[in-house]
Nucleic acid binder design. Structure first.
Lengths: 246, 246
DNA sequence: TGTATCCGATACATCAACGTATTCGATAGA
DNA sequence: TCTATCGAATACGTTGATGTATCGGATACA
């Protein structure tokens, strides 16, 4: 499978761009519902409101469509994560109270939650992972995105932990992976059970407990007890630590 | 998809049983290589040394073949795990020295390692998980096996930990899941990198570190230090860290 | 308003996998 | 040894997805 992208989505007439986008939207749904292999070009086109003619004048194969789709979704995911960081920064920097564990759990779940519907994304991502186990080229694309995502994630998780006065007791990469693995695990269980992960309050608790187990309080520079920060503005006034973890 | 098994593999003439087995063996390979959907009944038969006629007189659909395959593999997996328990019991009960961390890591990796080739099994299992996210019936079969496996695993891991004088700091089910998730994660990375997980020494170390983080020493009943057991009879007497967790 | 170009629709030829109906051969039992 | 039955092979019809070659209409520009 070729996962090399078309040079850019630029240089396309608006009409063409719109057609491509609608095909990608449809592919996102159809691929998630039926799996890439079981999906047919015809059904994607139908869903998008086109015939196969439109498809073949925009893509050459179903695999190329899938590659374009993954690139788009990965970009969206990274953009969404960056947006979270921006939105979170003032909140993180403003608060000074003790850490609120429920808030930390929500935060962690939020970090791993994608910009789109969880279930749909999980299905597509799972299939992408599967392909990456068979095809070295896909493995490369997978690893590239995984690394980009992990880097971004590490930055924001690190900042949150820092403000919470905690530090990972395992290498950062390993710890973040474990959190991600737990998220995936819980998400898949929820999907199998036909529920949404965010309806399950125990998911947040489990996430918090893992965060606590994977971290330890950072000793304050003056030798006193570690400072604690609240992620919820309504807390007490114990000050925030200033140094960065990770 | 129907995952209800044929009542039993009993009541089959030896000839029939043999062709079924050969078809299942072939399916195991072909499905892993190409994915279930991309695989064709013809190719499975070819690989097994039969024509499609043999297939259709033993199975009705490719899905039924897959269901039978998963049942067989799950049985093998559970049997292999039980065998490990039996093999390990005398070793676990005989030793009294301090726990050897490297041995613990090997043990944990061994627990999660299936009876067959890691890579092949990982591919099949991954696809089975994917199906379980779409089809409630598959989800049921998946959950059933997962529960059986987790129960067996918990028993043996619990015993090993007990002899090591340690106890999970999270609910057992969650802790075992985390270990499994980490194993899966590392295995998939190894496959993508084209290596075997067991060539990677850091995998063992990472596993040990997670075990240590997820557990704490159990205080001995008499108030003395926790009982320490060595899983390697020939190991040294270097004591174990007692303060691994948060 | 006329015309050229772009892009999606249509129609068709091809192919691969499927499932069934039937045949053929081997094996077991009389 | 003969025969009946079981199980795999063979052959054929059907279906559905694919890709291409061509057509038609909308849009932009003179």
């Amino acid at each position: 499978m070729t996962l090399i992208s078309t040079p850019a989505d630029v240089l396309l007439t608006p009409r063409r761009q719109r057609t491509r986008d609608r095909l990608l939207d449809a592919a996102y749904e159809v691929f998630a519902e039926q799996g890439v292999h079981a999906s047919t070009v015809e059904e994607v086109c139908e869903r998008a409101g086109f015939t196969r003619g439109a498809f073949y004048s925009n893509f050459t194969t179903k695999e190329e469509l899938f590659a374009a789709l993954m690139e788009r979704q990965h970009s969206l995911q990274l953009a969404a994560l960056a947006l979270k960081v921006d939105r979170l920064r003032p909140r993180l920097e403003a608060v000074t109270g003790p850490i609120d564990e429920a808030g930390l759990g929500d935060l962690m779940l939020d970090f791993f939650t994608g910009p789109l519907d969880d279930r749909t994304w999980c299905l597509i991502d799972h299939e992408f992972r599967l392909m990456s186990l068979r095809d070295p080229e896909v493995a490369g694309a997978f690893a590239a995105h995984e690394e980009a995502f992990e880097t971004s994630l590490l930055a924001i998780v690190g900042r949150a932990l820092d403000l919470a006065g905690r530090r990972f007791v395992l290498p950062d990469g390993v710890a973040v992976r474990l959190l991600g693995d737990l998220y995936q695990d819980m998400l898949q269980r929820a999907i199998r059970a036909g529920r949404s992960l965010h309806e399950a309050p125990e998911a947040r608790d489990t996430m918090v407990r893992l965060v606590l187990v994977l971290t330890r309080p950072v000793a304050a520079p003056d030798g006193g007890p570690a400072r604690r920060t609240d992620l919820h503005p309504a807390a007490t006034d114990v000050p925030v630590r200033a140094d960065a973890t990770c």
